[in-house]
Write a protein that binds this DNA or RNA. Structure first.
Lengths: 260, 260
DNA sequence: CCAAAAGTGTTGGTTCTACACCCATGG
DNA sequence: CCATGGGTGTAGAACCAACACTTTTGG
């Protein structure tokens, strides 16, 4: 071992990307963890992540690790913080950039990594002991998630392409740990241009989550919605086309927040 | 030269911290830049920043560079993004973590770095050509600053300890590139518990900015305010004492935003 | 028919917006 | 006394919270 080929004039930290992957099963917020196959913290649960390669950005690294370790792809991913505590990794100096990922119920079927590690969903408020400083990273991620949900229309990324009003309300209630009046939420959402109704003819059976505790199928059949036309593109945090001309925008105040 | 002492099994990027330092002179948003004394981009203007040491966190690094390169200390500093484009530094792979810093007018007197580099304030909407990808970093910082101003009571950090209502309004107007009704802003601020009046007896002459274009000293003398008692502590982004029990908080929805 | 869930109306109170108006100060 | 800028009041519109009520479905 230890064919140490890379030498530098000054010491450098190793750089990793770690992903806090959020899911929603209609009842509670879930986080996807993997079981570590190697020391340190072997057998312990941890956030999916890994070392950045020299020909990729840290964001590309996050997406790659997401795919390699959990099979998750095509999801909303957003950077939210750099964790650099000197002693956070017993192997030495490792700095990590943490990401939030939001996955839809349809993509909840995950597999372990190539190296046969387990991947499993945990209730966000009932997590097992975690490796490294991942507990703090997750706490920060949950705080940041609340902010993101207000700033950008991304709650939808925790639901299927089409969803019901009450499913969406449940997301906001769960993340914000509160409750909203069912009727007021409904009306407020309809008044905004956030969502648009989808002509529910044959689409009914196709839709909706499939995680445990779904399809009570009782009472009136709900209408299905999807993200409105105008917001379809813009939900990415640093969409260059959106970001580009933001400088010249006349009124840049935060008017279009997603408050419920 | 090139006594390359540090060797690793896998390649590692160099890690730096860069600071987008915002100031406000009563009229427009300013950014503090330094002139590069070394190649690459020698003589070009750039964000203050530098390489992380092995015994400090990236946040400590940001604060250190801030002090070393510009003499700025005791300011609000918040991480906001990691920039990792593969070709962003011609010397090789350098990843940077970007910070936003907010400094008060009283601290606008800055000096160049130890190595005799110049430091100077520029109007945020009239910047010189910049080194590396610093133009994009600044664009992202300005976007993020708008978000931060809504989420946390930090606009005050661009003003002196005590300030007038209209100074504060100017900050929001400038950052958000809009205008607010003078009277409505005033009333809204008074209704909230954000600020508290300071008994302005002898304090008048001590207060207020001292950057160019100040003290018109015409018309009624304005009352002075400062950040309210309840918010004095909480303005730090990841104040551990605040963050700690946030999990158990009953209603975690974003009710206390700073919208104007 | 009943229970359960989705969707619509109503109403009183609060807040917002766009003003008009008064107050204090320097020249 | 008047120009300038700080501070207060008000009325109509818009918005919000808390409900009652209707509609649709499964059993």
């Amino acid at each position: 071992m230890s064919e140490r080929k890379y030498t530098y004039e000054y010491p450098r930290p190793a750089l990793t990307a770690d992903c806090v992957i959020f899911g929603f099963d209609g009842e509670s917020l879930k986080i996807l963890l993997v079981e570590r196959g190697l020391e340190p913290y072997k057998g312990c649960w941890a956030l999916p992540g890994g070392f950045m390669k020299m020909d990729e950005t840290i964001d590309e690294c996050a997406r790659r690790e997401l795919l390699e370790e959990t099979g998750v792809r095509d999801v909303y991913v957003e950077q939210f913080g750099c964790f650099s505590g000197v002693g956070r990794d017993p192997r030495g100096r490792v700095v990590t950039v943490a990401f939030i990922a939001l996955v839809r119920p349809a993509d909840h079927q995950v597999r372990g990594g190539d190296d046969a590690r387990l991947a499993a969903w945990f209730d966000a408020s009932d997590l097992p002991p975690l490796a490294f400083d991942h507990k703090e990273i997750i706490a920060a991620a949950r705080r940041r998630l609340r902010e993101i949900l207000v700033l950008r229309p991304v709650a939808f990324r925790l639901l299927d392409e089409t969803f019901t009003v009450d499913e969406l309300r449940k997301v906001y209630e769960t993340v914000n740990n509160t409750t909203y009046d069912r009727r007021n939420f409904h009306r407020k959402l309809m008044q905004s241009d956030i969502v648009e109704a989808v002509d529910d003819d044959a689409s009914i059976c196709i839709s909706s989550s499939n995680m445990p505790g779904k399809t009570p199928e009782r009472g009136r059949r709900p209408r299905l919605f999807r993200l409105g036309e105008s917001l379809r593109t813009l939900s990415a945090p640093d969409n260059p086309s959106v970001a580009a001309d933001e400088d010249k925008r006349e009124d840049g105040s935060m008017k279009d927040l997603f408050l419920f």
